[in-house]
Amino acid sequence: MSRLQVELPGLSMKNPVMPASGCFGYGREFAPFYDLSTLGAAAVKGTTLEDRFGNPTPRVAETSSGMLNAIGLQNPGVEAVVAEELPWLGHYDLPIVVNLSGAEVEEYVQVAKCLNESEYVDALELNISCPNVKKGGLAFGQDPELAAALTKEVKQVTTLPVYVKLSPNVADVTEVALAVEKAGADGLSLINTLLGMRLDWRTGEPILANQAGGLSGPAVKPVAIRMIHQVRQVSNLPIIGMGGIETAEDVLEFMHAGANAVAVGTANFSNPFVCKEIIESLPTLLDEIGVHTISQLGRDEVQV
């Protein structure tokens, strides 16, 4: 077995690195840059029942060591994703995680059902933490009971492993983590973006047309590390860790905190080669710290 191999429910990954949902489209834009089979897995763009245009522009604003986005879950709808996008990406040798979202429980359930029709989906990621849609999304992620109920409903209609993507916009992330674990989640993804805002200093007007947006990039990394570490104290669920990862060193830091795999988000935008470069750098780093296989990293099991 390769020293970078990690095993998570539904995801047999040749290395722990996947591009994060929303930062990779459905893969097509990255294919010119490197062989996508290099990746440990891929988490594709947030998918809803119907196609969505998303929010008006401007949709991004830069901040120190980070960026705000308010794309608004633009996607072609699950039917088109199943018919056109997944078969294309499915030709590569990598497990696919489909991130799904909805305005209400029923929509998540419908999307999950439609995804049963595709042979190319290896796991679902429930997006209960998107700050950029008016209905649903984040509302589910901020209420442990709603999050648990949603997880339970989706679990009932799918045989795929379900990862729940948690929001950092909560007082205590462990409450939501434990609630969805109890409801049957197979894994957790954290963190989604932090709610933020920027104004034009001349006019006082928001820079994003949506006014507020989600903060990502290295600026949020310490928050992610803290939250993963916190969740790892109370749960043994597999964790896909994300939030500002830019380097192989960051990957090891996330795994020390308790992540079993990682997702790289914003860094893909400024350096489309970043996932490949990180994967290539991992063995040397492991040598440096005297670790043979990357799955040795991480935390001891907690007693729950």
């Binding site: 245009f53 401007p58 960026m67 935008f269 489309p272």
Partner: peptide, 27 residues
């Protein structure tokens, strides 16, 4: 337009076709 990635992945810089039917796409 303000851009994120510049190569089509982030969907920051979208615009609408005058005729989505003729364009065969909504953005």
């Amino acid at each position: 337009e303000r851009m994120g990635c510049g190569f089509g992945a982030c969907l920051a810089c979208v615009c609408e076709p005058l005729s989505p039917a003729r364009a065969g796409q909504t953005f």
